[in-house]
Design a binder for these strands. Structure first.
Length: 265
DNA sequence: ATCGGGATTGCCT
DNA sequence: GGCAATCCCGATG
């Protein structure tokens, strides 16, 4: 497929965009989808992943995770929420204290390596290794961009028969949900995002450097038992995005916007 | 060989 | 908001 480029970015007010996102069949969403094409220029290479854990966790926000299945269908979701697990002293990390096991091997592999681990029996979570010994970033939520119909089918497998259809924003708003929606499997563990044919990352097709992301940083979720480490504000998400799994109002009050989290008043 | 717990989800009240 | 589901992994004996 030839890489068709959009001439002018789609301009929609945030409130309007939120409304549109909830409707997968709105003209805006259809148009957005049409402009998404397989374009090698967009794929992120190994240099992108080679940065410190917290830095990578922020840099991943807005990037597009792409999954190409065996029939050539491409599923796309924009990363809207991540968590950093730098390892070392961090008790919440699978690599705490430099611990190495069969399961967490991928955390020690080169930046850009995928770490997939099973949780609660049936579910999976996906991480991306960063620079640093045993450091990785957990992907927690995506905003579906392409392939919503297939995502809905993949997600329906675990749900009660006759349950109402999932809204777009509920397809991948959680770490295990995004693995289901993009058909990320256990066998993807230890694969390289920079070179794998089935899964990769792309830049935002119409990112505007003049408008940096409004990033909220908050404590990570689901690790309350790890004392002081549970308080570190190492979860990052795009403020106001409807696909974020858990909104932290305290964190949003405490910090003004932007990419640097300068305390506000 | 056994045992305890987990970076969650979905359904029920 | 509560709570069961579900099983693999890693630690321990």
């Amino acid at each position: 497929m030839a890489g068709r480029k959009r001439k002018t970015p789609l301009k929609v007010s945030p409130a309007r965009l939120k409304e549109k996102r909830d409707n997968p069949h709105s003209p805006e969403m259809e148009e957005r989808r049409l402009f998404i094409q397989d374009d090698p220029q967009l794929r992120l290479g190994e240099e992108f992943f080679n940065q410190p854990c917290l830095s990578l966790a922020r840099a991943l926000l807005g990037k597009v995770l792409v999954r190409r299945d065996e029939d050539g269908n491409e599923l796309r979701g924009r990363i809207v929420e991540t968590e950093a697990y730098p390892g070392g002293e961090d008790k919440a990390s699978h690599s705490a204290g430099g611990k190495r096991t069969e399961r967490n091997t991928a955390m020690y592999m080169k930046p850009g390596t995928i770490y997939v681990f099973p949780i609660y029996g049936i579910l999976l979570c996906m991480n991306v290794s960063s620079e640093g010994e045993g450091a990785a970033v957990l992907l927690r939520a995506l905003e579906p961009l392409q392939g919503q119909t297939l995502m809905r089918r993949l997600r329906a497998a675990r749900r009660r028969e006759g349950a109402p259809q999932l809204k777009d924003k509920d397809l991948s708003n959680g770490p295990a949900k995004l693995c289901q929606a993009l058909h990320i499997l256990r066998c993807f563990d230890r694969r390289d995002l920079a070179s794998d044919p089935d899964v990769w990352l792309e830049r935002e097709p119409d990112a505007n450097p003049a408008e940096p992301h409004d990033i909220v940083s908050a404590p990570r979720v689901g690790i309350e038992s790890h004392g002081e480490w549970a308080k570190k504000p190492w979860r990052f998400y795009l403020r106001g995005n409807p696909c974020v799994s858990v909104v932290n109002k305290d964190a949003e009050r405490q910090y003004a916007s932007s990419t640097d989290n300068v305390p506000h008043v």
